[in-house]
């Protein structure tokens, strides 16, 4: 049984169909990517999964349907979304942002241990823990957003464009962390425009185009696919 199973997911904004009935699955422990151009419907798909966007179709998580379940309860069940643009709370401090990540948890001792772990992953956050999050650089904000998601001890981590707008060195750092988190056993669905990176770190991938999934398979195969190479990896045929 897959940890996440999406079947026939459809999302529309007014008359515009952003997601046209897609199927995708993520097994426990996998790192799966969803790549595609800007506006293909990747972010909408993630928002649909966590219930932030009204949708039709079925989303099953850990065997149970999420139909009608409010976002805060989906989050409490172990699904953490790091939204596009990071979604940090700009007027809370770094430490307060991280505390918000652990909002639903009652195991205070374990929360403190996880906080140490996050500060260990991102020493920069430790240095800046009393600073207002809005004053952090883009890369630091991305670290904070990922760290905050980890504070919920997620079973399923949904990452929306973690490389967006970051300097290459920072992208590398963020991706190293994503791989480390995956190795620690967190299941990840990674949405990226940067197909090259996403296919390199993931084991399987889906290619999304104008609201539909057009290709899927092992990441190595996708990376070798001439169509993918032409459309997303910047190679001419």
């Amino acid at each position: 049984m897959s940890l996440l199973a999406v079947k026939g997911l459809k999302i529309h904004y007014g008359g515009i169909q952003a997601v046209r009935g897609i199927d995708l699955e993520v097994e426990e422990g996998e790192l799966v990517c969803l790549i595609g151009a800007n506006g293909a419907g990747k972010s909408s798909t993630l928002k649909g999964i966590v219930g932030l966007e009204p949708h039709t179709g079925e989303v099953r998580y850990a065997g149970a349907s999420l139909r009608g379940r409010p976002t805060h309860r989906i989050a409490a069940a172990g699904v953490a979304l790091v939204p596009e643009g990071r979604g940090i709370f700009p007027r809370l401090t770094v430490a307060e942002n991280l505390a918000m990540g652990a909002y639903t948890r009652r195991d205070q001792a374990a929360v403190r241990a996880d906080l140490d772990h996050v500060y260990d992953l991102f020493p920069r956050l430790l240095e800046r823990r009393q600073q207002t999050a809005g004053l952090l650089s883009g890369g630091e904000q991305q670290m904070l957003a990922i760290g905050r998601a980890l504070m919920s001890r997620p079973r399923l981590l949904l990452l929306d464009e973690p490389s967006m707008g970051l300097a290459p060195l920072m992208v590398q750092k963020i991706y190293e962390t994503i791989q480390r988190v995956a190795r620690e056993g967190v299941t990840i669905l990674l949405v990226e425009q940067n197909a090259h990176l996403a296919l390199k770190v993931s084991s399987r991938g889906y290619v999304m185009e104008s609201g539909a999934i057009t290709l899927s398979g092992p990441s190595a195969e996708l990376a070798a696919d001439p169509q993918v190479r032409a459309a997303y990896l910047g190679e001419s045929i």
């Binding site: 966590v50 932030l52 805060h72 989050a75 953490a80 007027r91 918000m100 909002y103 905050r148 919920s152």
Partner: peptide, 15 residues
């Protein structure tokens, strides 16, 4: 305070 800054993200935190 988190809800005042972003209602959607607060929900993602389980609020």
């Amino acid at each position: 305070r988190a809800t005042a800054q972003s209602r959607a993200v607060a929900q993602l935190m389980g609020v």
